[in-house]
């Protein structure tokens, strides 16, 4: 795994999505969003949104689906 922290963040988001993908479908996207809202510090979420806003390459579709439910942090 690289020390590229952006790649790591994408990897972490996808890991979370992988877990919730196996959960009942109607809970999956909300599950991802709730998890990220509860445990991700704003600058991590900010980086995630920067990546989503620039196309979200490499992110699991479930993360993209959850994006609207993830709390967008205030600008730094």
């Amino acid at each position: 795994m690289s020390h590229d922290t952006n790649a790591k963040l994408i990897y972490m988001a996808n890991q979370i999505a992988t877990f919730f993908k196996s959960q009942p479908q109607d809970e999956a996207a909300q599950g991802v969003a709730t998890h990220i809202n509860k445990y991700w510090e704003p600058r991590m979420r900010r980086k995630l949104f920067q990546h989503i806003d620039s196309g979200g390459e490499g992110l699991s579709p479930l993360v993209l689906e959850a994006a609207s439910k993830i709390k967008r942090p205030e600008a730094a």
Binding site: T5, L9, E41, R43, M44
Partner: peptide
């Protein structure tokens, strides 16, 4: 009211 950084996140943020 926002969660802070966990240890691995602190180290990543330090590298950043």
């Amino acid at each position: 009211n926002e969660p802070g950084l966990r240890i691995p996140n602190m180290l990543d943020a330090a590298v950043d």
